[in-house]
């Protein structure tokens, strides 16, 4: 794959349930870029990301991950992608180490490498004291951290996160943000949905605003400010203004 190949390229994506959930979405994320996807509830964010990760099939459009057609060759695309859903799905009866061992097995990671990464991630996320305990009694924050460690243990090039900071305490949220920033610095592309706009404002290089399944605005924070015609305003104000404009236009 060339350096100019986008980490993620979505073109004309359409997914209908009873009504259109995603309606002609176009989106491009570059390698090493932190992209925040914002939108009100039901805007189509999670549906779009599930299509990217191969959990849903679109009705129309294309998705490519580092130049690999994710719809034609999902297995090859999945090798490069990690998905962290908003509700962490882990196994109650496994310990964090066993969970990482399982994920490494699914992605076919070299055992020695997997073990080293697992130890590093467990330590990095502050899970070491609980590494050999079964996850059944873990708090939501701990479960979220185990799920994130699982997403990172196979060293993905594209990290797709759906509301990864929901329910985390301040300390845990900072740990997760540091881990994500470090991965981005290593060249990993990060696509994240969030309702915590301060996080998007501080961490994301580019921000996309999705409404009724369509991208209504995209750019850096400054570009979005320009789009809204307000140079000093916060992302929250811009976001609400964009949604209001869309509603008025409709």
């Amino acid at each position: 794959m060339s350096l100019n190949t986008p980490a993620l390229e979505i073109r004309g994506l359409v997914k209908r349930f009873k009504t259109p959930a995603v309606d002609g979405l176009d989106l491009t994320v570059r390698p090493g870029e932190f992209y925040a996807l914002l939108g009100p509830n039901g805007a189509g964010k999670t549906t779009s990301l599930k299509i990217v990760t191969g959990l849903l099939r679109p009705d129309a459009g294309s998705v490519s991950v580092y130049g690999i057609d994710a719809l034609a060759d999902p297995v090859a695309a999945k090798r490069l992608v990690a998905w962290v859903p908003d509700e962490p799905m882990i196994y109650d009866k496994l310990t964090p180490y066993e969970y990482l061992q399982f994920v490494a097995g699914l992605w076919g990671v070299e055992p020695k490498l997997a073990e080293a990464r697992a130890r590093e991630l467990i330590g990095w996320l502050g899970l070491e004291p609980h590494g050999q305990e079964r996850c059944q009694g873990f708090s939501r924050g701990m479960r979220q951290k185990v799920a994130l460690a699982g997403a990172l243990v196979h060293d993905p090039l594209l990290l797709v996160l759906d509301e990864p900071l929901t329910g985390l305490d301040a300390g845990s949220a900072r740990q997760v943000k540091e881990v994500l920033a470090a991965r981005r610095a290593e060249g990993v592309a990060v696509v994240m949905t969030t309702h915590i706009l301060e996080v998007a404002e501080r961490m994301a290089e580019r921000i996309g605003v999705i409404h009724k399944g369509r991208l209504i605005a995209e750019g850096t924070l400054d570009e979005l400010r320009g789009h809204a015609g307000q140079s000093e305003t916060s992302l929250e104000d811009i976001f609400l203004q964009l949604l209001a404009q869309e509603s008025d236009a409709a």
Binding site: T53, L55, V75, V81
Partner: peptide
């Protein structure tokens, strides 16, 4: 299956 999305996103047929 407790983590269908994890298994579903794994790079295996």
């Amino acid at each position: 299956e407790d983590a269908p999305e994890l298994v579903g996103t794994a790079p295996v047929p």
